[in-house]
């Protein structure tokens, strides 16, 4: 047998991490954001526990502002994996009608950061898988695979547990929890290659197609439903676009593209000379913003 490839080694490592969590934690859950990273993580989970279905539910912390295509795939993916799907929407954000047009950063904070904390508390999950990768952002590069959270969901970057070999310390007190990042060592390209090789279904918005769009602050925004407030006289323009990342549709910028297959997407990605997360408005903050968000409990 020839030497294991880097993707085989990464997959084996991620599977090992997921099984450790299931063996040592009482009530794990998998955070599922419907994006490509979630898709790859869910696929690894299916492999880790086959022939059993993954022995934990999927949790989608919903903002009600995701693309319609994302909601469609969400239901389908959970069903095919044989897993329970929990959808959580922060009732306070719902009641106040928090939305990305009028509330800016509060939208992310209320729906996502607060929503996530509420959901974890409500169901008493003591471990939550997330699809974050260390290559995404500087503060992620230092975060452990098993990342400990206090009972109030805070991350203390200066007081992380040393993590040696493949020995993960899952011990915690009641009320405390662990965020687990099984895909820590994957890169953007690894994820795409894996999706391609394993034939994993992803949201069609990643592939180029003609879609109605408007331009806002230099970003191409897709008009996904009639909640989008058009300016006076503004008319959506048909463009051939696709998305490199998927968040809430009014916050996610599209790129003009004709890449309609996975190899074409990978090709286009490798030929671009800007970093991945440019499309997501939330990250256009100062350098340490993610570290601050994470300390407060953002995933």
């Amino acid at each position: 047998m020839s030497e294991l490839t880097h993707l085989q080694r990464l997959e084996a490592e991620s599977i090992h991490i997921m099984r450790e969590v299931v063996a040592e934690c009482e009530n794990p859950v998998m955070l599922y954001s419907i994006g490509k990273d979630s898709a790859a993580m869910l696929h690894v989970a299916k492999k880790a526990f086959y022939p059993s279905p993954p022995p934990f539910p999927l949790l989608h912390v919903d903002t009600t502002w995701k693309f319609r295509d994302m909601y469609k795939l969400r239901e389908k993916a959970a069903k095919e994996a044989g897993m329970e799907l929990i959808v959580y929407q922060n009732p306070e954000a719902k009641e106040k009608g928090i939305n990305p047009f009028d509330h800016g950063p509060l939208h992310t904070e209320m729906w996502k950061t607060e929503g996530l904390k509420q959901a974890l508390d409500k169901y008493g999950f003591d471990a939550a898988f997330g699809g974050a990768r260390r290559d995404e952002e500087k503060s992620r590069a230092k975060e452990r695979v098993f990342s400990f959270r206090s009972a109030s969901h805070r991350w203390d970057p200066k007081n992380q547990r040393p993590e040696l070999w493949n020995l993960y310390n899952a011990r915690k007190k009641k009320g405390e929890s662990i965020r687990v990042f099984p895909m820590s060592n994957w890169t953007e390209l690894d994820i795409w290659q894996y999706i391609y090789l394993e034939n994993i279904e992803i949201v069609p918005l990643y592939f180029a197609a003609k879609r109605p769009t408007v331009e806002r602050d230099g970003l191409i925004i897709m008009v996904d439903d009639d909640r989008f407030p058009l300016k006076e006289g503004e008319k959506p323009v048909e463009r051939s676009i696709r998305f490199r990342t998927l968040g809430c549709y009014p916050l996610t910028g599209a790129i003009e593209s004709t890449a309609s297959t996975l190899p074409e997407i990978i090709q286009e990605m490798l030929l671009t000379t800007t970093s991945e997360r440019q499309g997501r408005a939330i990250d256009k903050d100062q350098a340490a913003s993610m570290e601050k968000k994470k300390q407060e409990g953002y995933f």
Partner: peptide, 29 residues
């Protein structure tokens, strides 16, 4: 490569940071 903001201010590396790059032959961590 100096990730955490405290580290950038002090100009030193405190924790372990993982970096990724690849060439035609290998992926590196």
């Amino acid at each position: 490569v100096d990730g955490l903001s405290a580290e950038r201010e002090q100009g030193i590396t405190i924790d372990v940071a993982y970096r990724f790059f690849a060439t035609e032959k290998r992926k590196f961590i």
